[in-house]
């Protein structure tokens, strides 16, 4: 784990030293601010972040791939992956380290959200239960999307392809699973089951102030699956 943390620290430092990281942070701050004022913050409205959180989950469809696209693709492109793979580090440690680094940056992206919560506190008396669960939900959704991004990044040396592939997979868990239950060819009995895997529905409870064990299991198992797949892809490079 220590090795993974070292990799994560290197990854995070790399993000923090990159100007692009701050541009993304600024764009995210603008996006969340627009969501906050557009959907939520009005005189007399309920002092919650539920709509903002829901909006952020949609933003993450594009944001997470942007963070994760370079995780491994950049290493492949620059050739630095060879150094990593010859070092006494397992593929799993590399993948987990990369993902943790991306998560660290993702947590940093939540700083504007913390500022918005501060604004809410100053102008109202928000219930911190739903705020905490909403933040936890965002971390889980972010973690899930970043795991998908890590997997996609392991598949290609081209960052753009990794970015598009990530969006493609995330779209399956969002747009496709949202629309599929409404399709006429889907049997009624399956509709609810299919909706279960719809990420936004899984997040919904978190936004309301609820932490459902099954939602936590859904996200953690999803993260574990895509990190495992990424490790398998990385390992395959050794014998390809």
């Amino acid at each position: 784990m220590h090795t993974a943390l070292v990799i994560a620290k290197r990854e995070l430092t790399c993000q923090l030293y990159s100007s692009i990281g701050y541009v993304v942070l600024a764009l995210f701050a603008l996006g969340t601010g627009l969501l906050f004022f557009g959907l939520q913050f009005q005189r007399g409205a309920e002092a919650t972040m539920r709509s903002t959180f829901t909006g952020i989950v949609w933003l993450l469809i594009f944001l997470a791939p942007a963070i994760s696209m370079r995780l491994l693709s950049d290493e492949f492109r620059s050739g630095s992956i060879e150094t990593l793979m010859t070092a006494p580090v397992s593929d799993g440690q590399i993948i987990v380290g990369k993902w943790l680094g991306a998560m660290g940056y993702f947590v940093m992206l939540m700083l504007p959200v913390a500022v918005l919560i501060g604004v809410l506190e100053a102008c109202g008396d928000p219930d911190y239960g739903p705020l905490s669960s909403g933040l936890l939900g965002l971390l889980l959704v972010g973690g899930f999307y970043l795991a998908i991004g890590t997997f996609a990044s392991a598949l290609s040396e081209n960052q753009i392809i990794a970015f598009l592939l990530t969006i493609f997979i995330i779209s399956f868990f969002t747009f496709v699973l949202y629309s599929l239950p409404n399709a006429s060819f889907i049997p009624n009995a399956w509709r609810e089951g299919i909706s279960y895997a719809y990420v936004n529905q899984q997040f919904d409870d978190f936004g309301k102030g609820l932490i459902a064990l099954r939602s936590v299991i859904f996200f953690l198992s999803g993260i574990a699956l895509f990190l495992f797949l990424a490790a398998q892809v990385l390992e395959s490079r050794r014998w390809r």
Binding site: G129, G193, D205, G209, A212, R214, I217, F218, S221
Partner: peptide, 22 residues
Amino acid sequence: LLNVLVYLTLPGRGIFRLDLTA
């Protein structure tokens, strides 16, 4: 399989859900 099992056996409400609202 894990998620199917969870979906079928673990309700999304009741004791398997924390209600953090005040």
